[in-house]
Design a protein around this nucleic acid. Structure first.
Lengths: 229, 229
DNA sequence: CGAGACGTTGAACATAATCAATGAGAGTGG
DNA sequence: CCACTCTCATTGATTATGTTCAACGTCTCG
């Protein structure tokens, strides 16, 4: 089963999804896995298209968004390395997915992937856990939008990205997305987002190195304001 | 397998979860199923407690809510007959669940239930579909909180309840929950909710029969304002 | 009938949206 | 290399929306 065409196993450990899997299982996954590269701005998934693939982010950043007929947009999530996308239970994607920069993905045909999830108990457990995390994350965002003020919502986003990028950098947060993306994620306007940044700066919580690079000065207060609790 | 202790099968068809199951499968489900009755105000699930059971609502109404240390509250959903609760993938409930009136439930030990979901492909398919619906519903709410004005959010709730109660009544909507519950569901205050009702009345979309009974006068406009699209 | 909880309405205030102008940075072509 | 332009971000002024505080209604249940 450890055929020479087996891709380097470390690529499979990017995602929690593949944690603890045996070699045979990884081999089967490898067999149905393809690679995909996207450039900034490329669309991975079109809203309302048939859900055919499951993707795992190897590197890069993507944005998951929902558009309405009336032109309003809700950004649902930003996806980083290790995240998986399109593991939907519905037959249609209910959102679009766009790359925010150079992004590398693993592609699994959804049907085959679901079959393997059924067969491999470890994979099943992992999938369930991650599925639970997705819902939990969405509920956190729901809480933020329903109960928090503008600057608290921004803390929510910053803390979230910071957690994802932990280890990547020192204490700096790289904001690959535009102010409009942030605004549509937090249910605000770009002007309000801008003022929220200014406010956090005045509060000495952050330093605005550049528009897309933020240095966290007081993590505990940031987390406090971000907290759902 | 059609033993005499088998409970009336129609009780199992309340939920979409049990659609299309064979008699043997229903018998196994019956074997692990218990009943529970709640009165208005009774708590079914305490936030952060261990996720031990899966519940299916037979009759009544429940409210799913999340509380923060700081006392803020986000109502996540209202659950009606046929809904299921606690089919979480995490080991801990991340929300509390309270009965809003006399409610009857089916109780399944979560571990046993998950085992049966694995074994019965029909049940698995149904569970996946319903799981997808839960996420879809949460995303709709996210969109409403992020992008909609107060009176549109109220339309969102009214349309949703109306759809759930379709067939139960003529065109009247019964609002079993309090104004505070509605406010915490929509991310507003009770005063704003009250004014939103007044506004929809002025717009001739609804008639306020009583505080807890709303008659829909123009369904199409209501749906339009409620729409995520 | 009275008490208490819940809901509505009004007035003042706060927050965020909108409209408008300015500023900063990246890419282009002279 | 330096203007020039274009896009994106920030800041200010004004307006709109929703919150807060307060008073008043209404309904239910003794």
């Amino acid at each position: 089963m450890n055929s020479p065409v087996l891709k380097p196993p470390e690529t499979f450990f990017h995602s929690k999804l593949f944690r603890g899997l045996g070699n045979e299982e990884l081999a089967e996954l490898t067999a149905i896995c393809q690679r995909k590269r996207l450039s900034a701005g490329d669309k991975l998934i079109e809203q309302h298209s048939a859900a055919q693939n499951v993707y795992v982010v190897v590197s890069g950043t993507l944005m998951i968004e929902r558009l309405s007929r009336s032109g309003r947009r809700q950004v649902i999530a930003f996806s980083y390395s290790g995240d998986y996308i399109g593991f939907t239970n519905t037959e249609e994607y209910e959102y679009s997915v766009v790359a925010l920069r150079e992004t590398e993905l693993q592609v699994f045909p959804r049907r085959d992937f679901l079959t393997l999830v059924d067969r491999f108990s470890t994979l099943k457990t992992n999938a369930r856990q991650i599925g639970g995390n997705v819902l939990a994350q969405t509920l956190d965002q729901l809480f933020a939008l329903g109960q928090k003020k503008a600057h608290e919502r921004l803390c929510f986003l910053l803390a979230q990205i910071s957690r994802r990028q932990c280890g990547t950098q020192n204490a700096d947060i790289e904001l690959i997305m535009s102010r409009q993306d942030i605004a549509d994620y937090l249910g605000l306007t770009i002007e309000t987002v801008s003022r929220a940044f200014a406010r956090l700066k005045t509060m000495q919580l952050i330093e605005i190195v550049s528009a897309h690079r933020i240095r966290v000065l007081d993590r505990s207060v940031l987390e406090e304001l971000a907290s759902v609790n």
